[in-house]
Amino acid sequence: MEVRTIKVFTTVDNINLHTQVVDMSMTYGQQFGPTYLDGADVTKIKPHNSHEGKTFYVLPNDDTLRVEAFEYYHTTDPSFLGRYMSALNHTKKWKYPQVNGLTSIKWADNNCYLATALLTLQQIELKFNPPALQDAYYRARAGEAANFCALILAYCNKTVGELGDVRETMSYLFQHANLDSCKRVLNVVCKTCGQQQTTLKGVEAVMYMGTLSYEQFKKGVQIPCTCGKQATKYLVQQESPFVMMSAPPAQYELKHGTFTCASEYTGNYQCGHYKHITSKETLYCIDGALLTKSSEYKGPITDVFYKENSYTTTIK
């Protein structure tokens, strides 16, 4: 009895394709271990004539594949690729409408935090270190965002349907971005203890939790000093293409032309909904596939993004 075979390709990165001759009487799992086709788990399936010449994702289970996976995804987590594939199996079914010149995501599976993050990423200057993220990001900007969303979920250790947080998501993504040249110098002034300067680099240099107003941050924000008295913390120097200011959701007025974009969060910790506000020729609110415009805006804002380049204080 002759062994019926077909020729397929296996890959971990969709760049390096490895030619395989597979036995049609055995499952993919018996031949390769966990195997995925377009995100779908085909591990328990036997090869079919229609699979001839198709590319299958496999887990990096030998040295060659491990090197290829690390170079593309910059992670050695053995569960990463499987999590990416199972997320992709959902995100490829989502709709990605162009809204006001940006790629958004039609609401499904509690994905409003991903839509808000995706919209924000198209408006701030950011370059990702893992080629996987950078490639998928370019495709997302062009309207094909399924891979990018699935990668975000995998890097953030999230599953489809789980509630997510924009600030946490951005923080994970910033860790995989090139923020080497970003720098922030802060000064804390206390009447009792004097003053202390701190220099922050990388992710810490672009994120701040405690106030939404970048102007206020430049002037000074009140913080408790270690001595128990009130101290003032203010920005001395900022070198970065953008800054992200966050605070627990509270009524906040966004003035046209003073910011790049913002995240609105309605609801409580267990259950809520994100919308995205962007400042173009007027203010726009993007909620999944829905767009509304207004000249002014007041609502429960939790993150505001500002364009920056270089700032030095005039406070002496």
Rank of each mutant, 00 (worst) to 15 (best):
K54P: 03
G53Y: 11
K191V: 11
E168G: 03
Y274C: 00
P34A: 12
S50N: 11
N16C: 09
A140K: 03
N110G: 09
C190I: 03
M26S: 15
Y57Q: 06
D303G: 00
R4Q: 10
Y274V: 05
L283W: 00
H176V: 05
V99W: 11
L254P: 02
N49Y: 11
L88E: 01
G33L: 06
I223S: 13
G210A: 01
H90R: 14
N61F: 09
G210E: 01
E125C: 05
Q238Y: 05
G101C: 06
P241Q: 06
T19C: 06
T278H: 01
F305G: 03
D38W: 10
T282W: 07
G194F: 04
K92N: 11
F9E: 11
G33A: 06
K298C: 11
C112I: 06
P47L: 05
N129L: 06
Q216V: 04
A115M: 07
G194K: 05
V42D: 01
S213E: 05
T292L: 04
A146N: 04
I315E: 15
L173C: 04
P224V: 15
G257R: 03
A262F: 00
C271K: 14
F70A: 10
V189A: 07
A250S: 13
L118H: 00
Q175Y: 11
K293E: 14
I105L: 09
V185G: 02
Y265A: 01
M26G: 07
F259R: 02
D38C: 12
Q134Y: 07
D63P: 14
E168N: 05
K293N: 08
E215L: 05
V166E: 05
V206G: 00
M244R: 05
I152W: 00
T5H: 12
L114M: 08
M24S: 14
F259T: 01
Y214T: 02
N110W: 08
T266Q: 03
N61M: 12
Q197D: 07
F217W: 01
S25E: 10
V8R: 06
G257N: 07
D77W: 05
E204P: 10
A146I: 07
Y96P: 08
S246H: 05
Y234A: 04
P248A: 09
L118K: 00
C112E: 01
P47S: 05
Y252I: 10
T278V: 11
T313C: 15
P78T: 11
R83Q: 08
Y214S: 03
K127T: 14
N110E: 07
A145G: 10
N187C: 14
N14S: 15
H74F: 00
Y137P: 06
W94S: 07
L283K: 01
T192H: 09
P34I: 12
T10G: 09
M209P: 01
P60A: 13
L254I: 02
R83S: 07
M245I: 01
H176E: 02
L59Y: 03
L121P: 05
Y284P: 01
C227K: 01
L235M: 02
L254V: 02
Y57V: 11
K127V: 12
N178S: 12
E125R: 08
M207V: 06
T91R: 08
G29D: 09
M245C: 12
L102C: 03
K307V: 13
N100I: 11
M24H: 13
S79G: 13
A231W: 03
E71A: 12
T302P: 03
Q31I: 10
N187T: 07
F56M: 12
K316T: 10
Y265I: 03
Q270W: 07
A132K: 07
K54T: 13
R139D: 12
L119T: 02
Q195K: 14
G143W: 00
G33N: 02
S104G: 12
T292D: 05
Y274D: 00
L59W: 15
C225E: 01
M85F: 03
V58Q: 13
V188C: 10
I277M: 09
I45R: 13
I45A: 15
A145C: 06
H18V: 10
P300S: 11
M244I: 00
D62H: 09
E168V: 06
F148L: 14
Y265R: 04
M207A: 03
Y137C: 06
T159S: 14
Q195H: 10
S79T: 14
E281L: 04
T302W: 00
Y172W: 09
V203E: 09
H273P: 01
C227H: 05
V185C: 06
Q216Y: 03
L200K: 11
K298P: 05
H18M: 07
V203S: 10
G164K: 00
Y269P: 11
P248Q: 08
L254A: 05
L173D: 01
N309C: 14
V8W: 00
D303S: 00
S279G: 03
Y311W: 14
Q30N: 15
V221A: 02
A289R: 03
V8C: 12
P60C: 08
R139V: 06
C149V: 13
A108Q: 11
Q175D: 09
Y84E: 09
K127I: 08
Q216H: 10
E2I: 10
K93H: 14
T5I: 09
T75L: 09
K307Y: 02
P300Q: 13
K191I: 10
Q222E: 11
R139T: 11
I124H: 02
I286R: 00
P224D: 13
Q230W: 13
E71R: 04
V21A: 13
A69S: 11
P224S: 12
K54E: 12
R184P: 02
I15T: 12
T258C: 06
E215P: 02
P78I: 09
S25Y: 05
E204T: 01
V304M: 05
A69F: 15
L118R: 01
A145K: 03
V67G: 15
R167C: 00
K44S: 13
V236M: 09
A142N: 14
V67K: 14
S25N: 12
Q175S: 10
S310C: 08
V12K: 11
V304A: 01
S294K: 10
Q122L: 04
K233A: 14
G161R: 00
V58W: 03
R83V: 06
I124D: 01
Y306H: 01
P131G: 06
V12M: 14
P224G: 07
S263T: 10
Q237W: 07
L179T: 04
S246A: 01
D287E: 01
Q196R: 13
V185H: 05
C182D: 07
I152G: 03
G272C: 02
S79W: 12
Y297R: 02
A87V: 02
S181V: 05
S246G: 00
S25T: 15
F174G: 00
T27I: 12
Y137I: 09
Q175N: 13
E144I: 05
G288I: 02
E281C: 08
V206A: 02
Q31A: 14
L186W: 10
N268E: 12
T211N: 08
D135A: 11
T11Q: 09
A87R: 03
Q123R: 06
D13L: 07
Q175G: 11
N147A: 11
A231V: 03
Q216K: 11
S294W: 15
V203Y: 14
G82Q: 14
Y28M: 04
A289F: 02
Y84W: 08
C156A: 08
E125H: 10
L200F: 10
T159I: 15
T278S: 14
F56E: 05
N14T: 15
Y155G: 05
F174Q: 02
K158G: 04
A117E: 00
G143S: 05
V21N: 12
L59I: 13
A140H: 00
P60Q: 10
K7F: 11
I277F: 11
L37P: 05
P131S: 04
P130S: 05
L126T: 01
Y155W: 05
D109C: 08
A289K: 00
G288S: 03
Y73E: 02
N89V: 14
L179A: 00
R141E: 11
C261Q: 08
S104F: 07
K255C: 08
R139I: 09
Q134P: 07
Y297S: 01
R66L: 13
H256N: 15
C156Q: 04
F56T: 09
L17D: 13
V99T: 13
A145D: 05
Y284M: 10
F174T: 00
Y36E: 07
F217Q: 01
P224Q: 15
N157G: 11
T19I: 10
P241S: 07
L114P: 01
T35K: 04
E215K: 08
K255E: 08
T169A: 09
N89L: 12
I277V: 07
V203W: 11
T43M: 06
K229M: 14
N89R: 14
V188F: 05
V243N: 01
N111H: 00
T314P: 10
M26V: 12
K316D: 15
A145I: 01
H51S: 06
S263W: 09
T159G: 11
L153F: 05
H90Y: 14
I301W: 06
D23L: 10
V206I: 09
L179F: 14
A140F: 05
R139P: 06
K218S: 01
T27L: 12
